[in-house]
Amino acid sequence: MNIVIRHLSKAFGEKVLWKDLNLVIPEKGCSVLMGASGCGKTTLLRILMGLEEEDEGEILESQRIRQCRKCVVFQEDRLCEGISAVDNVLAVLPGRTDREMIRRDLEKTGLCRPFEEPVRNYSGGMKRRVAVVRACMAEGELVLMDEPLRGLDRESREKTAGYIREKTKGRTLIITSHDQEDAGLLGGKVIRLDGRS
C-alpha cells in the first residue's frame, strides 16, 4: 500500500516547514526526498518513524505505518560507540544471528575485517556504512534513510548504494538527500519537498 500524505503541516515555533503538504510515496520501491537544507526532509522521516507529531493533516494508514517494524539510518550515525560494528548490527536483529553473515554484509559496503574493535575508532565514513548495514539487515517493510551516503568517497558511495539496492528489494525505501546523484545511484524516484522541479 502506498504512503499517502494529505494536507500535512508542521512548524517549529515561527519556522513553518510545510503547510498543506500532499505526497504519494509508492510502496515497494525507492523514493528520494530532495530539497534545500531546512525544508523538512528529516522531520518528514521522523514523522514516518513515529518520533515526531504532525501539527495538522494526516498520513493514511498512519497507525499501520507507525506500528510496523522500521529499518532506519538516522541523520547522525547513532551507533553504540563502545561496542564493535558486528555487535551494533547484532543489537537490532531478532534471535540468534550468525556473526559471519554480518561480517560479509559489512564487507559488501567496502569495509575491511575484522570488525571487532569498538566503532569509536572508526572514521565518519566507516561509521556511516555500519549504520547502513544495521538498517538493511534489520527486519522491516519500511526502510527510512536520512542521507545514507553522506561523507562517503565515490567508490564507497557506489558500493554502498549497490548494497542498499540489493538489500531493500521488495521493501519500501525512503531516502533523503541533497545530491541528485544519490537518486541516480539508488535508482529512486525523486520527490522534491521545496517546490522546485
Binding site: 517494524r69 563502545g82 537490532v92
Partner: peptide
C-alpha cells in the same frame, strides 16, 4: 536520548536495549 530512539524504532527487546544501548554507556 538519540540512542533511546534507536531502540524504539528498531523495536529492541528490553534485554537487548540494556545490553547494547544502556550498559556500554553506564559502564
Amino acid at each position: 536520548p538519540g540512542m533511546e530512539e534507536v531502540a524504539v524504532v528498531f523495536c529492541m527487546t528490553p534485554v537487548r536495549r540494556f545490553r547494547f544501548i544502556r550498559l556500554p554507556q553506564l559502564f
